[in-house]
Nucleic acid binder design. Structure first.
Lengths: 207, 207
DNA sequence: CGCGGTCTTGATGCTGTTCAATTGGCGTGG
DNA sequence: CCACGCCAATTGAACAGCATCAAGACCGCG
């Protein structure tokens, strides 16, 4: 299955009959409040599993949107119990991915709750950079295809303040903006500012 | 296994050989930054599984501390692959619990990132109340055994501002403080202020 | 009785929000 | 081809929410 940039893949409240594996493309998970405030929960990369919640629970508790052209591999969600019965290795990997998602969410929550705007922004960009690098989704310019609004909604900051914060990072030559997103220029500076250790070295899992 | 209030059950960075099921008691998961800032990620109740990360990954990425006397059922973590091989039903439930944890984290992140201090506080207290009620861990006074520092570190707010925010909720007769924690007086007011729908109705899982 | 932990409250100021206006790129239609 | 509108980025100014500092009250405990 292929999906265009900007398209919604899964909606909060829907009871999707499907489970997907991302083959290529960028996306993000988010939740919204009634008045329009949006929180981006995490970004989605190749190799990620999406829709597990909709498969295990009654309905999805978050939405997913594509940031670029997105290709997915579709599974029927009722195959999941069978998977656990017949392919324990694979079932284990599904659980492993869920635990990894929790690790990423923990770090985001630490960031949004405790880090300053500058630390948060540096952390997020470094995080996106590392994840993209890990699955070879960066082109030559190291461009992360997001708008500043995405970054703002992920950091829990206003668009204006996000812009001013990113400018500080650009002034330090840590990144530059343009060409359809953010280019990472100096990962070390970002890690240093954020105080983040980087992604834990985890064994890779493919589904 | 029994653990005292205030004791640390698992430490970030440790490679615990154990996986636990909580039989009774209150606890919380948290992460800390080098300079001492602490973010409480979630609270732990009877029926929760803890230490899954340490079992699936190299080491724990967060710590867990007891808020009250805590009893745990200990499993060897190397039993996990066997569990997936021999007890697919139970393995499914482990995954279900991991997905539920993600749902709670998503909502917390939405809260810390987007809601105001008053909304956040109302949401958190209502959340703790609903979870405790679901597993019958409330005594007659509906007391949640936390300090305001715990609430502050969970909300990502300063202790002082948390105190002032809780006072507003107390002024509205939504809760009262004292007797070793927070007493919920009016859940409806909390839900109304927070704009939260309440815990999704999920089937219960016991391990 | 002194001490530490928790809660409380007032004063002050910084961090981040909101409002407002401008710029530039890009696709569309006249 | 150029005018127009739209979207993303940018910037300044005024304001508010929350942090920080400081001090005091209450209570259980050694």
């Amino acid at each position: 299955m292929t999906v265009r940039s900007g398209a919604t893949i899964l909606m909060e409240g829907s009871a999707s009959p499907h489970l997907y594996t991302v083959l290529s493309g960028w996306g993000f998970r988010y939740k919204m409040l009634d008045d329009g405030r949006r929180q981006i929960l995490n970004f989605v990369f190749a190799g990620d599993l999406i829709g597990l919640q909709g498969s295990l629970m009654e309905e999805m508790q978050h939405s997913i949107e594509a940031l670029s052209t997105f290709t997915l591999c579709v599974f029927q969600k009722d195959g999941l119990p069978k998977l656990f019965g017949n392919l324990p290795r694979l079932a284990f990997d599904v659980t492993w991915l869920a635990a990894r998602e929790e690790i990423m969410l923990d770090e985001h929550l630490l960031s949004v709750g405790q880090r300053s705007a500058l630390e948060r922004a540096a952390y997020l960009i470094a995080f996106l950079y590392q994840r993209a690098k890990a699955v070879r989704m960066l082109n030559g310019q190291n461009v992360i295809p997001v708008t500043q609004q995405h970054i703002a909604d992920s950091l829990g900051l206003s668009l204006v303040h996000t812009n001013k914060t990113l400018k500080k990072l650009a002034d330090r030559k840590a990144l530059s903006w343009g060409e359809g997103g953010c280019s990472v220029l100096d990962e070390a500076v970002l890690l240093d500012i954020s105080g983040w250790e980087g992604l834990p070295a985890l064994k890779r899992v493919y589904i």
